[in-house]
Structures are given as C-alpha cells and as structure tokens.
Design a protein around this nucleic acid. Sequence first.
DNA 1: TCTCTAATTTGACAGAGATCTATATACGAG
DNA 2: CTCGTATATAGATCTCTGTCAAATTAGAGA
Lengths: 129, 129
Amino acid sequence: MPKQELPIVDVGVQVSAEACCAPLVCEPLDEAEATELAPLFKAIADPVRLRLLSLIACHEGGEACVCDLTVAFDLTAPTISHHLKVLKQAGLIDSERRGTWAYYWINPSVLARMSALLSPASALAATPA
Amino acid sequence: MPKQELPIVDVGVQVSAEACCAPLVCEPLDEAEATELAPLFKAIADPVRLRLLSLIACHEGGEACVCDLTVAFDLTAPTISHHLKVLKQAGLIDSERRGTWAYYWINPSVLARMSALLSPASALAATPA
DNA sequence: TCTCTAATTTGACAGAGATCTATATACGAG
DNA sequence: CTCGTATATAGATCTCTGTCAAATTAGAGA
C-alpha cells in the first residue's frame, strides 16, 4: 500500500547546511556548533528511536507506515508517536499522511552529516601506548 | 580506590567489538543491538561532551590534560569531571594520571563504529532519480 | 610532616525525558 | 451524518541528568 516515493537527496535541512563536514577530530567544535549538533545525537540516543530510525530506513520503498512500526515494539501507540515526533523535530525523518495512514522516511543528508562528524580522520590521534 | 584507571590499550570496550559495522540503513537493528548502541550516542548527546571529545581529539599529542579542558568552559571543575566520566564509561575516551595531572585521549575505534553505523549506506537510497 | 594545587566524589536540586491513560483529530465506509 | 480505525495531543507520574558547593583524594615540594 505505501506508495514509494524515494525522498532522495534533497538537502533541505534546517541545520546550517554545508557548515557540516569537518570531523570533530580535525578541529575543535565551537560552542555554537556543539549546541546545534548535540540535539541530533540526542534524538538517536534512545534504543527505541534508534530502532525506529533503522526500521524506517530499511523498509522497502524507503518509507514505513506507523502501523508497521508500532507492532515492532512492546509500547503503546502514543509512545511510538512521541518518539517519531522527536526524530522529526530533529530533522532526521519526515512524514506525510496519505489517507488513513501516516508514512515516515528518513532524511539521508542529516544522517550523513552526523556520520561525517564522527568519522575518525584516518591518520590522526591513534596509538595511546 | 581510584585504581580503576588502567591505561589499557585501545579496544577495551564493553561493546561487542566487531559486531559493529552494518549501517542502520542496511538492516533493522534488533532490540539488543539498539540497547547496546544507544548509550554511545547518549554520551555525545550533550554540547559540553561533544566539545570535550572534540577538544581531546584535536589536542596535539592526541591527548589533553584536564586543566586544558576546564578553561575552555564556563563550568566548574566537578562538572567537567562528571562529563569526562560519562565519556569514559561509554568507552569513548580513556585516561591516565601522570603526576599531578590527568590526561585523556579518545578511543578511535568506538568513534569509527558509531560513524559506520550512521553512514548512509553508500549504494542505497542515494541514487539520483 | 605540612601545605598547596589538581582532580574526583558526594549530595542536593531543578529541569528534561520516557511512558502511560484518557482524549481528540482525521479519514473511509456505510 | 455516524461509526470505526489510525494517529496525534494532553496531562500525570516517575526517573534520569546537568550543575553546583562542599568534602575528599592524590601528588609535589618545602
């Protein structure tokens, strides 16, 4: 039933766009950057939301219906709804209502930014000895 | 009692080592994995800790003294100490006392694991329409 | 030994967050 | 329009977390 619509690239993020990609091991984060980035990690700093994000990202068609998600947890629907809202407000996912059901898909660019931030700057800072 | 320091080698992590690398957009995280991974993100889900991690990672020599870190914030020493403890317990950093001062360095393998988990599955969902 | 400085631990408190029940909204089918 | 199902919001509660002041531990030097 979910109509597949591939929410591809579309970098229309609310975070400051391309101010993104220097890994935090390359140059020190200033306070403003840290304040902007921390909420992204806070959004996935919960097992339920991590699984939600993964379930949505892996779902065929690139999107998942809330009904698919709710059954995967031993939690009430309002709780799932709450977690989805947190993920959405962080910009990690987006949603649309189509008829009776609501569909969610991930925003890959935000995920990419977070991944890049943590990337270990290959040649740096290894070996404590 | 503060004998727990152990300037151990690198991967002395409590997480299951190399069970790491499938990005969460590739296959759905199960509950156990999510429970194990969420605390890693929780550890960096705070602006102060994000900056601490970055300051430590970028510091020359690959390690930083607590005294270097404390002055970078408008927070008391106990608060910084608390945040360092959170990062250390998550396995993101390690520390050693040398003489009067305590030094911290990052554990790159844990950071790498987190980065890989969020990596947007190169070949997936990225394909330009 | 005593004292000074670096860092951590303890205890307290305010604010944030996860979950539930109950209620409300949105839509489709009769 | 009315009813039933799918989501979302509101409010309450209990727990977790960030911060500070005060006390404690650890090492260097006199």
